[in-house]
Design a protein around this nucleic acid. Structure first.
Lengths: 351, 351
DNA sequence: AGGATGTTCTGTATCGCTAAAGAGAACAAG
DNA sequence: CTTGTTCTCTTTAGCGATACAGAACATCCT
């Protein structure tokens, strides 16, 4: 019950293995009559074509590119930002007849990094540059691209990002301009054991990060921008377990049920901000009227929710990431795309 | 600038290639002191571990499984049913430390089938069994699983399905019981050139399918069930370009703007039905009151929309499909899961 | 006739890795 | 002193395919 190979077909026909190979790959290298005989026979014997793995080994190429996520794959397929990015990436790959492999290498499980080592791919793309998975891919000598301003300055991978600091600054400055001086920022957890769902001064938050050497993280530049944009305001931080609407709702509960509510809440992503808006709705609070809320990303849901946010070209990020992997000759390989502050009804001047 | 291999490391250290291999894979086969020396040296030389492709060739396994879609990948990541299925599938794979590859082989582009031949995977899962991609995978001798009742009776692949005919019958009978005798069914296009967005008698629809030998299609069993369940009712069909909410909205426009509206509309999927509900909303018509609407799948949006539908265990489908691929020994390999009629406010007795 | 050219097919050498068997040394037991 | 055992490392033989360098033969030109 062994697998049928070119050798088997060649033996039966009394031709060389090379002839069988050529019948499948280089029709000009043999008479069309013999070629037909080979293909017919192969089909009759149940040989459907050259084995992919062997061909990959010989050629050194797989025409497959990996997308690596730090989270569980259920996140990758449900978070709207992630889906939009992945879709654009996949469209380019599909158009070029390249395949994509979806990997998850969570920081929590070091053995999941093995997946990077075991992936037969020609390149790796990820949303973040400082994730161990991207580092592992670079160690293998694979081309990499990442799409969030999250890398150590020494990092040498290709990237397509927006200026997250400046974008954060725009949001912060917007709120400051509206008169907000007591603001809570909602941020996802960055390291295990980080204290969750308690309101802490931004200084404590920053100090903890320094202690844990978490100077770089996918949303940290934007968080810094927000803080600096709010120059002089009183800022506290609520850290949530994950980057999800549910988590945002949980944070909203903490923030809104206090006696002296802040005048504004800013999430480092739209899903967090939308969760806070959910919490508002549950309490009969009107975003924009009773409290201002801002997000980051401009996911589709932000439009209907009237959420003030930063629009970033997600699809361009995904598209260009794919293009960079597919075309190693392309000269511009460290790209910063423009962003835009989108003011909607969820932020208003403080009363 | 050539790649570093085990041979290079071995040569530098003056040991055999096998020793380097063992250092990485079988620590018990050499002294821990030598092993450390090998690993250190390898790391210093920039060798990060055995090459995935070569290892795959040698072992004949890749620990990677393909998911193949008939549509563009943007569909795969946006359609709620597809996403739910994919997520469950991916969770099992991730848990078993297997990788997934996402392929698209559209019927429209025959050359996209090459992707199946070129995929270095151990098995292939797809939503439909009659798609050429699944057939191509079977031709390669790969294990396959499909998840919709869409296969020719002679098909011999593994599957996890619901009884789509019976489920469709439940929906049809439900509408019939409520007194509906003039019903429009909304169905996605099944072959190129099918006449779109015109209301045609169900008999014409069926005849066209026969002529095109489209006796099997992913939603056809349920369509047949619906028709039979509505026994004796006057049924017409509107065919949409694709299976999407937008398409459903377009169909809704055709159906609702007629002089004598039907009393009920049934979509062969929830997204189509939800699109029809959108069209109702645009016209100030209340589903359930002015017209009854039913769908199929019970996607999350159906709940908030109050859509009567068939609930099917999507996540179980995805999970079991993955399990079947991962465990070739599992005895039950052709599985029919239960479904359930969920009656909500969108269907009411005819006035 | 002799050489150049072209067509069609064949042999060989890898691609990078690992299962399996083997070989040499050290040590213990009989 | 033989035999067996254990530990450590090496040798051999591919996995299935394709690049490359011919070889055999027909064709064409001068």
């Amino acid at each position: 019950m062994t697998r049928i190979t070119q050798r088997d077909v060649a033996k039966v026909l009394g031709v060389s293995v090379m002839t069988v190979s050529n019948a499948f790959n280089r029709p000009d290298q043999l008479s069309s009559e013999l070629r037909q005989r080979v293909l017919d026979r192969a089909s009759k014997m149940g040989y459907s074509g050259p084995d992919a793995i062997a061909r990959h080994l010989r050629s050194g190429k797989t025409n497959t590119y990996a997308v690596v996520f730090e989270e569980d794959l259920s996140y990758a397929f449900s978070d709207p930002f992630s889906v939009a990015w992945l879709t654009a990436f996949a469209e380019v790959m599909q158009h070029q007849h390249a395949s994509i492999m979806i990997l998850s290498a969570t920081a929590a499980e070091p053995e999941s990094l093995q997946a990077i080592q075991d992936a037969a791919v020609d390149g790796v793309a990820g949303l973040c540059g400082n994730q161990p998975a991207i580092a592992a891919a670079r160690a293998r000598g694979l081309p990499t691209v990442y799409c969030s301003m999250s890398e150590w300055p020494s990092g040498d991978g290709d990237y397509v990002v927006i200026d997250d600091y400046s974008a954060g600054h725009d949001i912060g400055a917007h709120l400051h301009r509206l008169g907000h001086r007591r603001v809570v920022m909602v941020h996802e957890a960055m390291y295990p054991g980080q204290s969750l769902l308690t309101e802490q001064p931004v200084e404590d938050f920053a100090r903890a990060l320094d202690q844990h050497r978490y100077g770089f993280y996918r949303t940290l530049y934007r968080a810094r921008g927000i803080v600096d944009g709010l120059a002089g305001a009183q800022i506290s931080v609520v850290v949530t377990e994950s980057n999800s609407r549910d988590s945002g709702r949980g944070a909203g509960a903490i923030i809104l049920d206090r006696k002296d509510r802040p005048t504004a809440v800013v999430g480092v992503s739209d899903v967090l901000a939308l969760g806070v808006m959910d919490a508002c709705a549950q309490r009969g609070l009107a975003p924009g009227i009773d409290i201002s809320i801002a997000g980051f990303d401009d996911v589709p849901e932000a439009i209907t929710a009237g959420l003030t946010t930063i629009r970033q070209p997600v699809r361009d990020k995904g598209r260009i990431a794919a293009e960079l992997l597919l075309d190693p000759e392309r000269p511009e390989r460290r790209i910063t795309l423009p962003h835009e502050l989108i003011v909607r009804s969820s932020t208003r001047p403080v009363a």
